[in-house]
Design a protein around this nucleic acid. Structure first.
Lengths: 250, 250
DNA sequence: CGTTTGGTTGAAATGTGTCAAACTTTGTGG
DNA sequence: CCACAAAGTTTGACACATTTCAACCAAACG
């Protein structure tokens, strides 16, 4: 599929989450050439060392950014869900310093850097919004550093679950604190810097504490407040649009 | 001190590291109003929850970004040295999600967001460069997540030392793999997610391995290649300007 | 010179990793 | 639709990295 398709609408949605678009801006976005592609699970989209000429907006599915150490260990540095723009940074950093890959089957929209750069020059507000998108991703990284550095297993996993739940909600993919969650324990291990075995035991502890239910690819927070406490979770770092902020209180 | 002063030159330097400036751009930078301020050690510059109307460029000294968990533990998410722009993100994220504070005495240049935004609208290349600056900071966060998640004490501290040394070199603050390093062991603990005691023991191990000398506020890599190996350090994530890349091989 | 701050040490407690095996679920091809 | 393979989860026992606590020492500092 190519250009001007209905598939471009998610792009408009992305911007409208934070910004009231003018007609011109909306039109510019609608006419941006996009290439929508379906991808298999567990597949590289961009690799460390690549010099991409385009960036991908996730439309459906779960993806992640990973880094591999010289010793061959792998760290997932963040998960991406629908609406996320995982490798937007490559717009201004020519060489990828990490891998961007699918976790589940995904649908992504590829946008050429040349088109995006032209858009940015012509529409400074859209440029600022894209910049903002990368800054929020940076804020998430800061929180992950803190999560890995300061919290032990139980809180750490709880925090990860809180973050994912809130982001899924904001993307319209969760309700009643329940969402699709197709992440294996070994992926959770790679994301939390723990061994698979210990993730397993921690999940049992979270279940025994009555905080979560996690099975067959779905996560449900049985006791949201309890989970938030366990994870010491404060969603401020997600810099959510104002309207969404209240939803946490529910 | 206010505006147009010789103090503004570091600003030009910052941009010229990555970008060949035009005369217009250089002039625009030179005329940006800056307020240069000297700050005491161990002092907040901006706090979590603040909504700053300006950002600070570090001219001298060591600073850091920190997050405090609900349990009162503190994580240093990154260190800042001369030439760094620690809270540039506040240009587009209205509320700070972390603290930015001095470690040593510092000299910083404050720049108003309104001025920076005007600059960005008029000079897209400068905007892109500022954006790039925040993206590189993001890349550093990714690496820290990996460092905390996948490396044990010995490698983790080695990696931190490698990063600092390379960044100090690039800022012109290190030569012969030796630089000022006024970080206490308890700061290193907060940055590495380890206890002070274990930092102490790890430093002894690094010394016994003949990799470093660290005393009276100075760090020297006695065996740079060994340190790089121990830390599995690959500086690609720092996205250094091309000319500097070769320096690592020395 | 005393006081503070930062560094070092030892011993014990504990969180987490490792290994290896068994079990369960999911997916697939016959 | 079953049977089988593959993938993911769970378990136990043990090893080990790291934390904690408490004390002591050294260096920096006014």
């Amino acid at each position: 599929m190519h250009g001007h398709s209905p598939q471009a609408y998610p792009l408009v949605t992305h911007f409208q989450r934070h910004l009231a678009l003018t007609e011109h801006e909306r039109a510019a976005l609608a006419f941006l050439p996009v290439r929508v592609v379906g991808l298999k699970a567990d597949q590289d989209i961009v690799r460390e060392g690549d010099k991409p000429s385009r960036s991908a907006l996730v439309l459906e599915g779960f993806a992640c950014t990973t880094k591999i150490t010289a010793n061959g260990k792998r760290q997932i540095t963040t998960f991406h869900i629908a609406g996320d723009w995982p490798d937007l940074e490559s717009l201004h950093l020519d060489t990828m310093d990490s891998d961007f890959r699918t976790v589940t089957e995904c649908v992504v929209a590829f946008l050429d850097h040349t088109d995006l750069k032209a858009l940015c020059e012509q529409y400074p507000r859209l440029a600022a919004q894209l910049w903002r998108t990368t800054l929020i991703q940076g804020a998430i990284y800061r929180e992950w550093v803190t999560n890995l550095g300061q919290r032990e297993a139980f809180s750490r996993i709880a925090h990860l679950f809180c973050e994912m739940m809130v982001r899924m909600e904001d993307a319209g993919l969760a309700k009643d604190k329940e969402c699709s969650f197709p992440l294996t324990q070994s992926l959770l291990a790679e994301a939390s810097g723990m061994s698979t075995v210990h993730v397993n035991r921690t999940l049992q502890a979270l279940r025994e504490a009555g905080l979560i239910e996690l099975k067959s690819g779905r996560l449900k927070a049985l006791d949201w407040e309890g989970l938030v406490n366990a994870g010491e979770f404060d969603p401020a770092y997600l810099h959510r649009p104002r309207e969404r902020m209240s939803q946490l209180q529910q």
